[in-house]
Design a protein around this nucleic acid. Sequence first.
RNA 1: GCCGAGGUGGCGGAAUUGGUAGACGCGCUGGCUUCAGGUGCCAGUGUCUUCACAGACGUGCUGGUUCGAGUCCAGUUCUCGGUACCA
Length: 820
Amino acid sequence: MSDRYEPQKIEKKWQAKWDEAGVDLPSEDPSDARKSYYCLEMFPYPSGNLHMGHVRNYCLGDVIARYKRMNGFNVLHPIGWDAFGLPAENAAIKHKRPPAEWTYHNIDQMRGQLKQLGLSYDWSREFATCQPEYYRWEQWMFIKLVEKGLAYRKEAEVNWCQPCHTVLANEQVVEGACWRCDTPVERKNLAQWFIRITDYAEELLNDLDKLSGWPEKVIGMQRNWIGRSTGTEVSFGVEGSEEVLDIFTTRPDTLMGVTYMAVAAGHPLAKRAAKSNSELAKFLEECSHISTKEADVALMEKKGMDTGFKALHPITGETVPIWVANFVLMSYGTGAVMSVPAHDERDHEFAHKYGIAIKQVIKPVDSEWNIQAAAFIEAGVLINSAQFDGLGSIDAKVAITEFLTSAGKGEERVQYRLRDWLVSRQRYWGAPIPAIHCDGCGIVMVPEDQLPVVLPEHLQPTGGASPLTECEEFVHVDCPKCGKAARRETDTFDTFMESSWYMNRYTSPHSDDAMVDAAAMKQWAPVDQYVGGVEHAVLHLLYARFYHKLMRDAGLFTSEEGGDEPFRNLLTQGMVLKDGAKMSKSKGNTVDPNSIIEKYGADTARLFTLFAAPPEKDLEWSDAGVDGASRFLKRVWRLMESADIKPAGEDDAAAVKALRLTIHTTIGRVTHAFEQGYAFNVAIAALMEMTNALSAFEPKGEKGVAVVREGLEALAAMLVPFVPHFACELGERMGMEKMAVVADWPAVDESALVQDEITLAVQIQGKRRGEITVPKDADQDAVMAAAESDASIAKWLDGMQIVKVIFVPGRLLNIVVKPA
RNA sequence: GCCGAGGUGGCGGAAUUGGUAGACGCGCUGGCUUCAGGUGCCAGUGUCUUCACAGACGUGCUGGUUCGAGUCCAGUUCUCGGUACCA
């Protein structure tokens, strides 16, 4: 049986065999004693073609799924499509075809590409999020959230892109401009739908501690994003009025140093002042066009205008001017701040510019400070603060907050940077928001029995407003409450909504009486291993964590059934680079997976992406490296063919023993690489080493042939996760009973690891001077004797006095000497 | 500015967690095979000294701990990611 290695042929063959045998399907039979394991990769957006980033992502997940199966787990490994989104609308405009058509076509194409890679998915669970059977539950959930007050509609300052005619999420604003048309975004007040993620801020923050299987980096980013800070809310009075001006500060100790207040351009007080002040109105208008580009923001000139209003200090009763400032954000805190130029750099700069007083109230513990030259922003001792004089900053924060609390003018408060999640989009290709606008009843949610609100799929976007707004059959509806003619909401959900719960839906993808089935959740959820790009560290991964808790609190499953967190372990893979840069069409440095599979086969493509870098690091594409991967497989192939020999002599017993040692240490090393953080590159390196050892060995007798066979069978099994088609073919040609993909993961034979003799390094003064071979149980004296009788070591001991000997059994002998 | 990760051959990267640095692969050099080779095989490949045998140096930099440090400690520098008028 001497054939060439023909990847295309054997890959097709094995894919068909796996399908036929159903080896990738998980079992839901309650009598199945295996432990459940849920492995998931971030599902793809059907953009049309698989790129190398996908290949890497899905290969990593597949390696884990296959490894777990071979280790006796009942593995759920599903796939589907994140099918709603903007690119479909862009393509629709370009090709003048509805986005649905483009999307379904792409799904068909990409499904074929995924299958070519030999990924072990349970395809029976596949779904696309643009199917009404899927998004109906999202609509159902949203209605529940509205009932609980966790979803609401309100007017807010949002990012607006005029040409695209929609609001954008912060993440869709790149350097101050729309990611699609590159037009600078405007801040606009619009009525939009939000979900109250801030209600869960505390739990989202605290539960980060439960995510021991997540990279520290991602946890840190989320913690940062949630941005918890503790401080004091203080109520200032407004002169000549009953109203109050609330502010949040983390530095209540500086309260006595307030010399002015600053409010955001969108603050009611600013708007009111502008009514009688055209100059100010102009300034507010200017502020609404401010770029949100980070660099600009940091460098932007700090500008302000006096509103003419005066605030009353809550302790002294003194009046201070209220200004509008372009650096105060309406969306953080109360949209107003107290300003203490003496102890805040920004306020200091502002006060200098506009000639506002600077009043020092904190001084360094034991030095002086020139407050006119620079703000003193550290903790210190209070001065000029009446009854609080002499207190340290920390004590003063408590004392002043207590004073305000008892006076009813303030209290301690926790403030988050996290904002409520804006989920409505003025887009067509998304899940309809199940709401109805009635002139008489206001906003009425669609009754449950009328779900789903199906998105008409035949509409043709043109680039302006969503075609939904002009689709009469969609918009016209009778009010469910009063029965009069009303209008459907034409906004659709942010597509992050769909990707926030798909991992749970996979546990019961066809359930039509519930969003998820609690029993299925109990069997599979949470995801044991999630694999995806770090670019979703905050957005998708935060939303999904949030949504999981929403589902739990909606009673869809309990903590015991589905967990409090959706993803137990997270592997964030690095990018695939070419010439040091991310692959992109515009840079022209892409490598097409199809052409690699065509030329080398899927197994080589898999092997290269897994070997070239550790999973979490960026991977530099190398054509030479792909050749190397291909060469390795050919080498194993030849080794397998040459192993088919008839023994005709006597083996070197020591060599046979040494080879068995190599085989079993390799099994240990590869297993260890899997268990210790998925070091697949190291695992493959170990398999290459073992292959080299097998190639170098020349069997002469029966024992030799048997040990080579033992090595090849172990190799076939351990290659399964990386190159499953190749491994199956290898196994079959070796005459293995079962398909390699369903074989057991090889076990280490401890007896093979026992050596009669071992080699120790010998050091003099900690420097390696030679090595000696001694019986495995040799004690220090015996090893010392062997070292002293070794010429290359003995010469270093000549004329020296031995001061100390360090003996590490099994490793080394270190002799410390000094001149005699 | 703040938070995080990291500096190991020509390159990607190993190092059992304080014990023989540079596994494995790529690249390169020489040789063999071949009509030919973008094939296969063999040998070599951290730097420097040396005909050789050997030896010295070597994990960003400076110190420290230790019989012994890529690994631990202190400081320093550079690179990369994230993030920011957040009050």
